[in-house]
């Protein structure tokens, strides 16, 4: 039970990753596959951010520990905990995963835009965005290109 509590976030991340991958692999519709890919990519954000969270921490925007806000935060925590894990009297969550995920989100939207643009061109060229129908069109074209026996 305690394992569930300490690893709940990771289990959710796995479920979301599987959902995204399943859409990408099972769907034949190019747009739906891009949506699945976006879901898959976004699950990595949850993954990284989850292990950057620090119990009782706050956002990594440096506070004045003597100020009202800093005092209010410190009051909620065990002083020994703050002394061990805090920085200048305030406990912060880890900023590094945040930076990495900012990058990953931006990469995700770039991929989405290019992928959808290609899908639109596929629709313009083949008249469909379903993989099966695209394959069928390609096969017919290939047969027509064959020289008569």
């Amino acid at each position: 039970m305690s394992w569930i509590a300490t690893h709940f976030n990771y289990v959710v991340v796995v479920i979301l990753m599987m959902a995204g991958l399943f859409i990408v692999f099972s769907s034949g519709n190019l747009i739906k596959r891009m949506i699945g890919l976006a879901l898959f990519q976004s699950s990595t954000a949850l993954f990284y951010i989850s292990f950057g969270k620090v119990s009782g921490g706050t956002a990594a925007i440096t506070l004045d520990a003597q100020g009202a806000e800093g005092q209010a935060l410190a009051a909620q925590l065990d002083p020994a905990y703050v002394a061990q894990f805090g920085v200048e009297g305030v406990v912060y969550s880890n900023p590094l995963p945040h930076v990495l995920i900012l990058t990953a989100i931006v990469v995700g939207v770039a991929t989405l835009a290019v992928g959808l643009a290609i899908a639109v061109r596929v629709r313009e060229s083949y008249g469909t965005v379903e993989s099966d129908e695209i394959d069928a069109v390609s096969r017919v074209a290939a047969e027509q290109a064959e020289p008569a026996p």
């Binding site: 300490t6 690893h7 292990f51 950057g52 969270k53 119990s55 990594a60 900023p95 590094l96």
Partner: peptide, 18 residues
Amino acid sequence: DFGDPASPANSHVGRAYL
């Protein structure tokens, strides 16, 4: 564990930045 302040991820480079 989730939220562990002493985990490697939260105690090495990430903490150094703070």
